[in-house]
């Protein structure tokens, strides 16, 4: 590109100055725009709520409780022995998003299933936490929005959802206390 003309039409010292000025200007503009974009991302107060502790001592076998973490419902289910057995018995090839039961829980605490209670399809909250809720064809959870069926390990078995219910990062502080986040 030649902006200033000389006899040979070669780039001149002035062309170089024009190009560097424009380049510095573009970098400066991009740097100035970044804060205007980044302000949209989750702010400090949202991130501050990112760790909770859940007390499991009052949850009976066969009972489910919903906690709140990052504004999302967290499903914690105290599974019965029968549910664990059924979940373990499912062959991997029957699944949409194959995962063994052991990959969904923490070893030594297999009775506790901890999951984000948000359907992986389009974000509805599946039914199945209350005893009289619909639990779907696999006796786990059922999303009423577009008909996704989850089994007793929260794995997607039927319907449009592509993934199993998400297992959040969590650890056991003691046998009845978990830290989520």
């Amino acid at each position: 590109m030649t902006l200033a003309t000389n006899v040979k039409n070669d780039p001149t010292r002035r062309d170089f100055l024009y190009v560097t000025t424009a380049a510095v200007g573009a970098v400066g503009a991009a740097a100035a725009v970044w804060p205007l974009i980044d302000q949209m991302n989750p702010d400090a107060t949202v991130k501050a709520l990112a760790v909770i502790e859940a007390d499991l001592s009052a949850i009976e076998v066969g009972q489910s409780v919903t906690f709140k973490w990052r504004g999302q419902p967290i499903f914690i289910r105290h599974r019965t022995a029968a549910e664990i057995e059924t979940a373990k018995a499912v062959p991997l090839e029957d699944m949409i998003d194959p995962q063994t039961d052991a990959e969904r829980v923490i070893a030594g605490h297999e009775q506790w299933l901890v999951m984000v209670g948000i359907c992986t399809h389009l974000g509805c909250v599946p039914l199945g936490q209350k005893p009289d809720d619909l639990k779907g064809d696999f006796n786990g959870w059922f999303c009423p929005c577009h008909g996704s069926h989850y089994d007793s390990a929260g794995r997607i078995r039927k319907g449009p959802a592509p993934k199993n219910l998400l297992v959040p990062p969590y650890e056991f502080m003691s046998d009845t206390l978990v830290k989520i986040g």
Binding site: P42, V46, R70
Partner: peptide, 17 residues
């Protein structure tokens, strides 16, 4: 998704924007 919502779920920041 988090950028659009301003959080992990639809919440007050989402409503504001």
């Amino acid at each position: 998704l988090e950028f659009l919502r301003g959080g992990f779920v639809v919440d007050n920041p989402t409503l504001n924007r």
